[in-house]
Design a protein around this nucleic acid. Structure first.
Lengths: 192, 192
DNA sequence: CAAACTCCATACTCTAGCGTATGTTTGACG
DNA sequence: CGTCAAACATACGCTAGAGTATGGAGTTTG
């Protein structure tokens, strides 16, 4: 409950605020990003905030852009390193399934789609990921039109899963059940 | 811009407020449900509202329960009337795909999943629908475990589609493309 | 070491939106 | 046609949270 989560840096930068905002978004959603609350959490007051940002909206914007920029480099590059295209997709499914931490922000943003600022960011990110899936399916030997639809379907299933299991806590699925579900997805959505 | 959208009923009931709230939810989300704004829209003032409801929260609750109760009777009963189980699923897909009006509220609630009141409602509704899909797959001849996973996958795809195309306005899909996508879903998710 | 800039505290204003208190109209019914 | 309760108006209080004004402490630089 204390305000000293971070090792008590003496002075803050704009990036510190953005990181804190992102953390708060992941934990409590975009609406929870209030300047005074954030300031308390960082051990300072509003006076600090309004030196770094002109408005609250500016902070949210900066945090979202930061997430869009640095948030998803890892997985995609890891997957692209896999030579055989036919191994790539199942591997992608399994890795995404088992590293659910990076998806926290994405899930939080999904349920904050009221907010006008998050819509364009999510649109861009989702679009890029779907195009990645699209080429992955084509490289696995699927004809173009079918690949596009399959990419849409796959990504919709991903988004829907986040909503149904992260946000809604539908009847808590067990680990074994979850693994079985993932394998079922692979069997259903990836061509033999 | 005038306040006389409805044929100017002299006096209102609680149900009128609930309906208006639902309409507002569908159009602008749950957060837009403010009592003074709603009152203006109905041509009255707050004084009326606080006669019918004890609090704003009570209105939202009543509106959600109303939606949960009366909102989805039609489609399911229509589908259950189809005798052949193997025709049922494709038909369900196509009808759901082409009557996107009733899904407006569901989509609006999906992006309002911050709000604590909507979570249990959405959990119940989603759960029921997934169980409906589950039995549908079993009756179509699919083994139980696979049927359950396929139901999860199908419903996740549905939810994700709403998010990606309603809320985010991803590159506006054409009618022909959309029909092709639906047929692709049917071919992929429903056993031959 | 003094000027100048960066970072932050304190104290304030302003607005939106919920809720309350209390008076006023309408309409059904004896 | 008077009565009483349902339905509404008006005016107010209250809080949360964004934004402002201003001054001071800490750090860098000439």
């Amino acid at each position: 409950m204390n305000a000293n989560a971070k090792p008590e840096r003496t002075r803050l930068s704009a990036e510190d605020w953005e990181e804190a905002a992102l953390k708060l978004i992941a934990e409590q959603g975009v609406n929870a990003v209030a300047v005074e609350a954030l300031a308390r959490q960082l051990g300072v007051t509003k006076g600090s905030f309004y030196w770094h940002f002109r408005t609250r909206e500016a902070l949210v914007q900066a945090a979202l852009e930061r997430w869009e920029l640095y948030g998803e480099r890892e997985i995609i590059s890891q997957i692209e390193a896999i030579p055989d295209p036919r191994v790539r997709l199942p591997e992608l499914f399994r890795r995404v399934a088992h590293e659910l931490q990076p998806h926290r922000v994405y899930a939080a943003l999904l349920k904050a789609l009221d907010h006008p600022q998050v819509v364009p960011v999510m649109a861009r990110v989702s679009q890029r990921r779907m195009e990645f899936l699209n080429t992955a399916y084509r490289e696995a030997g699927m004809p173009p039109v079918e690949a596009l639809n399959r990419a849409r379907l796959t990504y919709a299933a991903y988004v829907g899963f986040l909503q149904l299991n992260f946000t809604l806590g539908l009847p808590r699925i067990t680990h074994e059940e979850f693994d079985a579900y993932v394998e079922h997805m692979i069997a259903t959505l990836i061509p033999a």
